[in-house]
């Protein structure tokens, strides 16, 4: 799946003449922006939800009533109990149990943790690759630029599913019969990281092209700073704004992609499910009336994605002064 241009293409920073030395990142803390955040109730709500999810993910082992990742604590005999308000429920399981007898609520907490971790690391990796390549391409120009952009073209033709399959295959071939549980997590992060870097690269390259011709870069070059230093100290801070926006929205996308990969059979092992794996498993119980097995992870995922995207929207508008 190449979901690259999902995000509006206009987040490259526009030069408004003023404030060049201060990066957009610095302006994030501007009271103006905080004001715009508080001005919209929906944005506040989205922020609150995201924060709550982060807390849950962080402290899942402490707040979850059960440990769904410990097979010794999961009893098949409890399988498919409905939520507590329905007939035939078990008071131990607030939101019921899944097909293996795992407590849904605990599975959601842990699943959220896994999903956010994979999404977060995946996004971090793709941003790292993309920003680095984008900076180099934009700053160096010429053949190096052309080469990197051609690599980006090639990457776009590989659907994420195939990347995941290939990474999975290569990792297993290299590790020689390593168990799925040990490697699946890394495979997912790597697959997502390798699937989503192009957008960062293109955006950062565009910004770098603009920044490179500015006076301060010329000045830095004149006083003898070397290219890596210029890139790191001067160009990078100025292109971080758009990167942050893409990262926010890609986090949501990464979580969804992980779910899709799980549907295609290359996701995380069912013994340590992410939200996506939970949906994939629950998907089989949609027609049978055991709706809670898919509904709760589905709703959690949808709420997470919408909240994170709204934060991303707000961030983009806030960082683009012309839209304010």
């Amino acid at each position: 799946m190449t979901a690259e241009p999902l995000i509006d293409t206009d987040i490259t920073p526009r030069t408004d003449g003023t404030d060049e030395r201060r990066g957009r990142f610095a302006r994030l803390l501007d009271s103006d922006i905080m004001a715009s955040f508080l001005a919209s109730k929906l944005t506040v709500l989205a922020g609150f939800v995201t924060f709550a999810f982060l807390i849950i993910a962080l402290f899942a082992p402490l707040i979850a009533p059960f440990n769904p990742f410990d097979p010794a604590q999961v009893f098949l005999i409890d399988a498919r109990d409905p939520p507590i308000w329905m007939a035939g429920s078990d008071p131990r399981f607030l939101l019921g149990t899944d097909d293996q007898g795992r407590d849904m609520l605990s599975a959601l907490f842990y699943g959220l943790r896994v999903s956010l971790l994979i999404g977060g690391l995946g996004v971090l990796l793709s941003a790292l690759i993309g920003v680095t390549l984008g900076l180099i391409a934009g700053y160096a120009g010429g053949r190096i630029d052309a080469l990197i952009m051609r690599i980006a073209d090639i990457q776009l033709t590989f659907p994420a599913i195939l990347i995941a399959l290939l990474v999975d295959g290569v990792v297993h071939a290299l590790l020689k019969s390593g168990g799925r549980e040990d490697t699946a997590f890394g495979v997912m992060v790597l697959s997502i990281g390798l699937s989503f870097w192009v957008q960062y690269a293109r955006t950062v390259r565009g910004s770098t092209l603009v920044e490179r011709n500015k006076d301060y870069v010329h000045a830095a070059r004149l006083i003898g700073l070397r290219s890596p230093q210029i890139l790191w100290r001067h160009v990078l801070p100025n292109v971080l704004g758009p990167v942050l926006v893409i990262a926010t929205i890609n986090l949501a996308l990464a979580v969804i992609t992980e779910a899709t990969l799980s549907f295609l059979g290359v996701g995380l092992p069912p013994t340590q499910p992410s939200l996506g794996t939970l949906i994939r498993i629950g998907n089989a119980y949609l027609f049978s009336g055991e709706w809670w097995i898919v509904a709760f992870p589905g709703i959690t995922l949808a709420v997470l994605v919408i909240a994170v995207n709204m934060l991303g929207d707000w961030l983009r508008d806030a960082l683009n002064p012309r839209l304010r």
Binding site: G298, L301, V305
Partner: peptide, 20 residues
Amino acid sequence: KLLQAVSLAGISLPTFLIGI
């Protein structure tokens, strides 16, 4: 704002689940 939030429905669930 609501429209913007609603429009996110299309990307908030995996395609396979929406299809089903």
